[in-house]
Structure formats: C-alpha cells, structure tokens
Simulated scan of single mutants.
Amino acid sequence: MAAVSDFFSLGSIVWCRTCYNKEIEGEVLAFDPPSKILILKCASTNGDPKLNDVNFINLSLVSELQVKKEVNHVPEVPQSLNLQRLNTRVRNQVDEKKRMLQAISANVSSEGQSLFIAIAKTISEVRWSNSEIVVWNQEVIISPPYQLENIRGNTTSKEYGYIRKVVEKHMKDIALSTQSPSVCQNNTSQ
C-alpha cells in the first residue's frame, strides 16, 4: 500500500484501490488515524445526482491511494447543538411515555385506556385518579364507562367544552374503526 497519511483534510478528494481491486473515489468526510478508517462521500451508485454513497474504507486493506485534490482551507465549524432545546424535547418525550405507561398500567377498561391516550396526545395535564380520568387538575373528570354523559365539570367552561369535543371525536373514531370491516364486506359482496 502507498504511504498512509497521518491526516486527510476534510473535503479533499481521494482515490484508492482496495485489495479486492475495487476503485473508490470521493470526498473525505472523516478519518480516524488509530483505526485507519477513511470515510468518503462518493457519487451515488444508482445514478441519482441528489444522493450520495458513503464508504467506510479500512486503509489497511488498500493497495493504492492518491490524494487527487487537497483542500487547504479549514472547513466551517458545524453549528453547535442547542442542548437546552434537546433536553426539553427529551423531557417532554419521557413525560409523554410515562403518561402512556400510566394509561396502560391503570386497572381500567381498554375503552378508558384508549380515551386517556387520546386526551394525552393533546393535553399534558391528564392523570388517573383510581378509575377516573382527571384533566387540568380536576377541572374536568371522566368516570367509567367513559362516555359523554360521564364527563363532569363546569359545563360552561372552555375546558369542559374542549374535553367534550375530544371525547366526541374519540367515540366517532372508534365507531368508524369498528364499522369499517363491515362496510368493506358489504361492498365486496355486491
């Protein structure tokens, strides 16, 4: 093999021939000197100009190597990650998963669990109190069997109206999903 450089500049164009006699040419994305792994961005093998192939090349298995174009300027430093935003997203996802787990682990009917999950998708302040679904710190409470007539709260409040609409939509969605197979059967039998 040709002498291995201790460093490949990011953005440089490199050509190599592997021990399997395969020729690879591409732009250097990364190079790890301890493992002698070179990562090249190459033209797509399917011919789509919008796509690229990424090849991981073990330089220990390369018989020839040439730097076709050396890049002398330092590439732009990538923008740093917004760790506060990422932490917030992680925390929100963990909270949502906990609510979903709480719905599944509650000792209630599948209808209650399903309604709880539907509400929790849009409202974060939802929890179980025994077998009752409590929304917005007891502004609205839904008791078994989790129908429209089982919603309690201030009937003139916006919160009550909103939860009522969520429950109505959930009940319609369930009704449609249970009717769909019979509708398909009716259509196919004609």
Rank of each mutant, 00 (worst) to 15 (best):
W136L: 13
G11H: 05
W136S: 07
N21D: 12
K41M: 07
H170F: 14
S60N: 15
T18E: 01
K158T: 06
I119K: 00
S5E: 13
I104D: 09
E76L: 02
L61C: 07
E139A: 14
D53M: 01
I141N: 09
K97S: 10
Q179C: 07
D6I: 05
A30T: 08
I117P: 04
K165S: 15
K41N: 03
S35H: 06
P78N: 10
K22E: 13
Q79G: 02
Q138W: 15
P75Y: 04
G11F: 05
G11K: 04
I123H: 00
S80A: 08
N92C: 07
K98Y: 08
N21P: 07
T188V: 01
Q93Y: 10
D48E: 06
T156Y: 06
L83F: 03
T156K: 09
I37H: 04
V167H: 09
S143I: 13
S177A: 10
T188M: 07
T88S: 11
T18I: 08
K98P: 00
K165N: 15
Q102K: 14
K36P: 06
R89A: 09
Q113H: 04
N150C: 15
S129I: 06
V166M: 12
C42D: 01
S182G: 02
V54Q: 04
P181L: 09
D48S: 08
P181Q: 04
V135D: 05
K169Y: 11
I123V: 13
H170I: 01
T155Y: 01
P75R: 06
A43C: 03
V67K: 11
N46K: 04
S63A: 05
V77N: 06
P49N: 11
A118Y: 00
S63V: 15
F56M: 03
A43K: 06
N137V: 13
N154K: 08
C16L: 14
D173S: 11
V62C: 10
N130F: 00
Y20V: 00
N137P: 02
E25L: 00
E96D: 10
R127T: 13
F116Q: 00
S109N: 02
S60W: 10
P49L: 13
S157W: 09
K169I: 09
V90A: 12
C19V: 00
E132R: 15
V90I: 12
N52I: 04
G153Q: 03
N187K: 02
F7D: 10
K22I: 03
V67W: 08
M171P: 02
A30H: 15
Q179F: 10
L51D: 09
S114W: 06
E70T: 07
L59A: 04
Q147E: 15
K97R: 15
G112A: 09
N46F: 00
F7I: 11
T88D: 05
D95H: 13
K169L: 15
I141C: 13
V90D: 05
G26P: 11
L61N: 12
Q113I: 06
V62R: 01
E25M: 08
Q147W: 12
A3R: 00
N187Q: 02
P33Y: 03
D6Y: 05
E168H: 07
V67N: 12
L65H: 05
K36F: 15
A2E: 09
I174K: 14
R164V: 08
R91V: 05
D95Q: 10
V67C: 10
P75I: 13
I39W: 09
S182R: 11
E76F: 01
S143Y: 15
E76G: 02
